[in-house]
Amino acid sequence: HNLTITQGKLFFHYNPKLCLSEIHKMEEVSGTKGRQERNDIALKTNGDQASCENELLKFSYIRTSFDKILLRWEPYWPPDFRDLLGFMLFYKEAPYQNVTEFDGQDACGSNSWTVVDIDPPLRSNDPKSQNHPGWLMRGLKPWTQYAIFVKTLVTFSDERRTYGAKSDIIYVQTDATNPSVPLDPISVSNSSSQIILKWKPPSDPNGNITHYLVFWERQAEDSELFELDYCLKGLKLPSRTWSPPFESEDSQKHNQSEYEDSAGECCSCPKTDSQILKELEESSFRKTFEDYLHNVVFVPRKTSSGTGAEDPRPSRKRRSLGDVGNVTVAVPTVAAFPNTSSTSVPTSPEEHRPFEKVVNKESLVISGLRHFTGYRIELQACNQDTPEERCSVAAYVSARTMPEAKADDIVGPVTHEIFENNVVHLMWQEPKEPNGLIVLYEVSYRRYGDEELHLCVSRKHFALERGCRLRGLSPGNYSVRIRATSLAGNGSWTEPTYFYVTDYLDVPSNIA
């Protein structure tokens, strides 16, 4: 807008934040220059609390790290170098490059900038070799853009010569660093050979998330399962459950009422301010606690030095998902009996873990797994792929695949051998790939016309006998059925096997 004052003059007093240069501009645009008398524009009460600059400061050096910015700028000295009290560095987070010096300023003089007072450097006698002032900004957020400017702080001049310097606002972004852990990993099994893994992005990506790394490792069953005799009275049979499938998407929606109208769909109840505040506090606490764990609990591995020492970490090797089922080394339970199943799973520490690289999504279907087997899954978020990966501390989750139908069934015939004193040795093959492992066998036998009897055969007993022995049988026709019990439950009964026990007292003698 054009402003013209045809008559009258300007009068400025007691404006401590208004620089004289701005008042002189007002004289020019209003056409009143030359009308004012000496005392109409006070030299001592206008701009006496402001830094009124008329020179431009330029930054000469900028260096960044993930949490620091090192700045240096060209030296500046007023005509009387004693008038320079120091520099004021202003900075704040700036997602967009549209910041002005006066953003967030209120009537009390406060604003949204963080201000650092910096002492002037030592003055050199040689004007050509003056030290460049600077400042190291610490405690910054990774991968965050900051708006920065600097200006001088000078003393009051009796001659009211307006001098000083100020830089333009520059924008500097800190470097990326390792992201925080992925949030809320959930693993479920939808079949006997697959596990579905879902997660949420890290709360602090500290860069642009480029991919996720998912490692999985087959877990050995508890050692007590191999040692305890679950045929003993009072000892509860062990059981394991597989990871249940995901709930429906509708039930997972946030901010939804727990109660549904019987007449149909209901609208979600909005969260109160107290609920939102509580969630923010919980989120802040979780982030602080995660940072504490990362800094205190997890110790970084030592990389190899120039002395030739090897990095103890196993090298990563990509495998196809079809090879995942046989990740671990199978060892027989008892070496003397080769027909026992290889369900003991000690994992070799030198073995390469299978892994998958996930790009542009937060889910993965891990296939080719062994049925009813526990897996430990390790999830890392990465925001750099080359020249070397920059990934987060791992988040861990466990899951067990679903049982395989008929995996616990005894394959092959049940054979028998009759000894003296009416002892019958029953023999059968253990299931080759049971659900988890076989903890015991149930032997059901009966003599024709009598009630059915049951015998429990422990895992250890089966390994020693290759089956079991029935003792003290009365003469007669017998039928026997056997079924295995694994961590997933009972298998199917075998087809009945028949044998006849004679009275050993009636056996004919070869003595003449």
Rank of each mutant, 00 (worst) to 15 (best):
P205S: 07
N206F: 13
N206P: 04
G207M: 15
I209N: 13
H211R: 06
H211I: 01
Y212I: 11
Y212K: 00
L213S: 13
F215H: 10
F215T: 07
W216Y: 08
E217S: 07
R218A: 06
Q219H: 03
Q219L: 13
D222T: 06
L225N: 03
L225C: 05
L225V: 09
F226H: 13
F226Y: 11
F226L: 09
E227N: 10
E227M: 14
E227S: 11
Y230H: 02
K233V: 15
K233Y: 12
G234A: 08
L235A: 11
L235K: 06
K236V: 11
L237H: 03
L237M: 09
P238M: 08
P238C: 11
S239E: 11
S239H: 07
R240P: 10
R240F: 14
R240N: 11
T241E: 02
T241P: 06
T241C: 13
W242L: 12
S243K: 03
S243G: 06
P245H: 10
P245N: 12
F246L: 09
F246E: 12
E247Y: 12
S251G: 05
N255H: 05
N255Q: 13
Q256A: 15
S257Q: 11
E258F: 13
Y259M: 05
Y259W: 06
A263R: 11
G264Y: 06
C266Q: 10
S268L: 11
S268E: 13
C269P: 10
K271I: 08
K271V: 06
S274Y: 04
I276H: 11
L277F: 12
L277M: 12
L280T: 14
L280A: 15
E282G: 13
E282F: 13
S283N: 12
S284M: 14
F285S: 11
F285Y: 06
K287G: 08
E290S: 10
H294G: 04
N295S: 12
N295A: 10
N295K: 10
V299R: 15
P300H: 09
R301N: 02
K302L: 10
K302T: 11
T303Y: 15
S304R: 07
T307F: 06
T307L: 13
G308R: 07
P312N: 05
P312H: 12
P312S: 12
R313T: 10
R313H: 01
R313P: 15
P314K: 13
S315P: 10
R316I: 13
K317N: 07
R318E: 11
R319V: 09
S320H: 11
S320F: 12
L321K: 13
L321W: 08
L321Y: 09
G322D: 09
D323K: 03
G325K: 14
V327C: 15
A330K: 14
A335V: 12
A336I: 09
F337S: 08
F337R: 13
S342Q: 13
S342K: 03
T343K: 09
V345K: 06
T347V: 03
T347E: 11
R353H: 07
P354F: 08
F355H: 12
F355R: 06
F355D: 03
E356R: 09
K357E: 10
K357W: 02
K357M: 13
V359D: 01
N360M: 14
K361P: 10
K361D: 04
S363W: 12
S363V: 15
L369M: 08
L369V: 09
H371P: 11
H371E: 04
H371A: 13
F372K: 01
G374M: 06
Y375H: 05
Y375N: 00
I377M: 10
L379H: 00
D385A: 10
P387Q: 11
E389S: 10
E389F: 13
E389N: 13
R390N: 13
R390Y: 05
C391R: 01
V393T: 09
A395D: 10
S398F: 04
A399R: 05
R400C: 09
R400M: 07
T401L: 03
T401Y: 00
P403Q: 07
E404K: 10
A405K: 14
A407W: 08
D408W: 01
D408A: 01
D409I: 10
I410R: 02
V411S: 10
V411R: 15
G412T: 05
V414F: 02
V414M: 07
T415W: 03
H416E: 04
I418N: 10
I418V: 10
F419L: 09
E420S: 03
E420Q: 08
E420Y: 14
N421T: 11
N422P: 01
N422M: 03
N422T: 07
V423W: 06
H425P: 01
H425E: 14
H425K: 11
L426M: 13
M427K: 14
W428F: 05
Q429L: 09
P431Y: 02
K432W: 08
E433M: 06
P434C: 04
N435G: 01
N435F: 00
I438G: 01
L440M: 12
Y441G: 01
Y441R: 01
E442H: 07
V443C: 02
S444F: 13
Y445T: 04
R447K: 05
Y448H: 09
Y448T: 14
Y448D: 15
G449E: 11
H454F: 01
R459P: 06
R459T: 06
K460M: 11
H461P: 03
F462R: 07
A463R: 11
L464M: 10
E465V: 14
R466I: 09
G467Q: 03
C468F: 08
R469V: 09
L473H: 01
L473G: 01
S474I: 11
P475W: 05
G476R: 00
N477E: 05
S479H: 03
S479I: 05
R481L: 09
R481P: 00
I482N: 00
A484S: 12
S486T: 12
S492C: 09
S492A: 14
W493L: 03
T494A: 03
E495F: 14
E495N: 14
P496L: 13
T497E: 08
T497L: 10
Y498C: 08
F499Y: 01
F499V: 11
V501G: 00
T502M: 15
L505K: 09
D506F: 11
S509A: 08
